[in-house]
Amino acid sequence: MREMLSMIVVLTVLTAVSGGLLAVVKAKTEPQIEEQVLKFQKAPAIKAIFADATNDPIKERFNAKAEGIELQIFPSTLADGVKAVAFEAKGTGFGGPIGLMVGVNIDTDEIIAARVTTHSETPGIGSRAKEDLSFVGQFAGMSMASNFGTKGQGGEIDAMSGATVTSVGVSQAAVAAQDLYKKLKPEIVKQMN
């Protein structure tokens, strides 16, 4: 009985202390991690989406708030005078959350381009969503009102063969982006003018 009790007490105390310690470390490193994600994941994605931007979308980023949702918005004016915004939405893939950065023309509601940012998909299989642009390239030119489901789900997106779960995750992120855009567009337009 004594031994059983000591096992329970030691394990409980140990896991509680380690949980508390990790919470502290996470809270301390979070701002720094966000900065790194912005620099190494979001910034390259935004540069690829707005290749001919005349401004610096990363510097001019702002937060749009509506209906209890807050979203980081990267505004841009393209070389041909088109006004556009980029923002990130998440879906769930095979290895965890997948971030999809979507650039949208705010006058026509058309997607300019989309890129995968953070993900933890299997290297060489699901990670093709990020590396092989022919998959995310499908989003370019689509209207924000399209059905972003995969073809298997009755939508318009061709899934990557061998990486169905990842493809569905990306398509989920696109649907989430659609939802966010619908809710936040008035607020985005207001803040951009």
């Binding site: 310690l21 990790l22 470390v25 996470k26 490193t29 720094q32 991690i33 790194q36 994600v37 620099k39």
Partner: peptide
């Protein structure tokens, strides 16, 4: 996990 957080924060 501490190493993981640290690497994400400083050597991304």
């Amino acid at each position: 996990t501490i190493v993981e957080f640290m690497m994400q924060a400083y050597t991304y």
